[in-house]
Amino acid sequence: MKIMTCPFNGPRPVSEFFYWGEIRPMPDPATCSDESWADYIFNRNGAPGVKQEWWCHIASNTWFIAERNTEKDLVLRTYLFEEEL
């Protein structure tokens, strides 16, 4: 069983979590061009590497950030959004 560490609840089975993709800065929809908006909503960084991603512990509804190596399947660090600041 794969384990993910929730910043509140500690190590839990990964099946208790929900994955919401890589953190990406959103352009301002009011000012950006159609092309850059399309780039934002569709295109993804699909190559493997260490990525910062949104995850959610479903049982406690805790949204947090995981730094994960998507090639080696390793979670390097998990933390709450506030902790990053």
Binding site: R44, N45, G46, P48
Partner: peptide, 17 residues
């Protein structure tokens, strides 16, 4: 392996693995 090859030519796609 598509995203790795496309990175070599700088083409962006929505593909995730």
């Amino acid at each position: 392996f598509t995203p790795r090859i496309l990175d070599m030519v700088d083409i962006k796609t929505p593909i995730t693995i």
